[in-house]
Design a protein around this nucleic acid. Sequence first.
DNA 1: AAGAGGCCCTGATAGC
DNA 2: TGCTATCAGGGCCTCT
Length: 287
Amino acid sequence: MPELPEVEIVRQSLNKKILEKKVKKVLVRNRNLRFKIPSNFEIFLKEKKIIKVKRFAKYLIFNLSDNSNILLHLGMTGTIHLIKNENKDFLTNTSFYSSPQLPDKHNHVEISFKNLKLIYNDPRRFGFFQIIENKDLLKKRFLNLGPEPFDPRFNEKYINFFCKNKIKKIKDLLLDQNFVSGIGNIYVSEILFCCKINPSIKVNLLKKNELRKIIINTRKILLNAIKKGGSSIRDFKNINGNKGNFQKHFKVYDREGLNCKRIKCKGIIKKKFLSNRSTYFCNICQK
DNA sequence: AAGAGGCCCTGATAGC
DNA sequence: TGCTATCAGGGCCTCT
């Protein structure tokens, strides 16, 4: 489901609602997520307070009262829902879900606070929870991942270095989380359109000003997506069940066969499989 | 070393 | 109506 902007939306809404709350009960219905939920998960969480919800790239980090952390990756279809404990009908009667039916089939984890319950739902189970015992281990966990797009380390010097003498396709590089963390399949198409760069082009052929554009536009597009509440294609909703709006601003993603949105460009949006994922680009302005 | 492909899963949709 | 095939926002792996 979520790339960096969507995870950030979830983080922001969680941060408003579960800070300083103490975990009263943990129920794991299905441990078989991408990685098995550890057997001590429930005991580990119980009676601890959520101090802060942070984010790195597509990972949510729950800082707990004893300096430990719970890491959560939403995979493709992971969603978080908050409901009020005392009202059992709340799920079916409110807008937390767009469907009138309670999709509790894939509610794998429930974390209860005094008046509030956090539910983790994930049909495809590509998401996962991890216990990170302390700050050092947290740092270590992300050591091999590249900087976030907003990190000053993600700069011209950095991208020039990575692109020199490499014959990787630019799409592959931007999706490589070890190079830069947080970009996924939707935003990579949008970023490259914005830069007028063909996703198949080899990085060693890109000029310095094009690489500079990639840095600038990556930040611009991700920030704009956050501002618009993320993208809601398929099932992404924030924890209040509201949809984001950025999908209305897609220039190329899921627009195969439609006209290029650039004024005066007569191009048609094409779809192509790159890195085993669908890729959208204009056949004229991204030559 | 790049890149194609497979795999982990379920569900929505399209085509017959 | 009901079957099958294909495709999904992630990330890991292996093989060539």
